[in-house]
Design a protein around this nucleic acid. Structure first.
Lengths: 141, 141
DNA sequence: TGTATTATTGAAAATGACTTTCATTATCAA
DNA sequence: TTGATAATGAAAGTCATTTTCAATAATACA
């Protein structure tokens, strides 16, 4: 996972710095959407001189490369999650933030039908289920 | 529509001022999600002394009263749309922003099934279709 | 391997959205 | 009509994010 991201950065002609590698480490391994300040804090545990500006710039690059995407939640709209190509159906835990791309619902045809009813040309969609995962239920959130 | 909103404000013991009425006018009639600065600009056309602070405070109240809800889009996560109770399935135009609450898809059971597969306790969901409305297609966006 | 080029970094300053403060003004119950 | 007090808006404050710029480091190439 991490290596794929690093390769994509290289392909784009970007230099591989220790800072970028550390940020990629955190984000490519996280199963929850993270905001810049969280990435900053997590990365600084192993790389204490890292600056916030570098976090912002690196995350922006990763989004442009299609490796990260924004996840919108009431708790904040600045959270970024690793992309799973072709899978934009998400299940997110309100407690711990764990995000799961789920499959098994094929609703493209129905969505297309709704769009046609309203004379819309459908471009994409976003489906997100919100709830509490097993651990968070057990811990009584 | 507007009167219902005003009544709800009264019920909460809030005073009906000219500013609040003007803001309610704009938001209760808009068929697209608006951000505070847009509400400010629109409202000031008929009410030039209005302050930005009042816009923020009034929109916050309207959200708390369940009359407005946030709509998350890449173009901004600070847009508010009038609520249509029990309808959280939206079709939004990328061009003009027009938002339509649609019905006809009953997927609660399927969503519940997905949640159970992953041992989640489902709380709510958000489904949004994005595309181009007829007018925006015609105008070649 | 050494070196030149230039992308990257991070501190500091700037920006911009939003919130808080507070003196003035306006609503509305009595 | 009047008084209690909620609401307003200017100004100052806060906080996330962006820009600037001199110093540093990665990479291509000699």
């Amino acid at each position: 996972m991490k290596n794929i991201w690093i390769d994509k950065l290289k392909e784009k002609g970007m230099r591989i710095t220790a800072q970028r590698e550390a940020i990629v480490d955190i984000l490519s391994q996280s199963d929850k959407a993270l905001e810049p300040i969280e990435v900053y804090d997590l990365t600084r545990q192993n790389h204490p001189t890292l600056g916030m500006v570098t976090v912002y710039r690196t995350m922006e690059c990763l989004e442009e490369l299609g490796l990260l995407q924004k996840v919108h939640q009431d708790s904040g709209c600045n959270k970024y999650l690793k992309v799973k190509e072709g899978h934009n159906h998400l299940l997110i835990c309100r407690g711990c933030g764990k995000a799961i791309y789920f499959e098994g619902l094929d609703m493209e045809m129905q969505f297309e039908g709704i769009a046609q009813q309203h004379n819309f040309n459908l471009e994409d969609h976003w489906l997100q289920l919100n709830g509490l995962c097993q651990q968070c239920q057990a811990s009584g959130r």
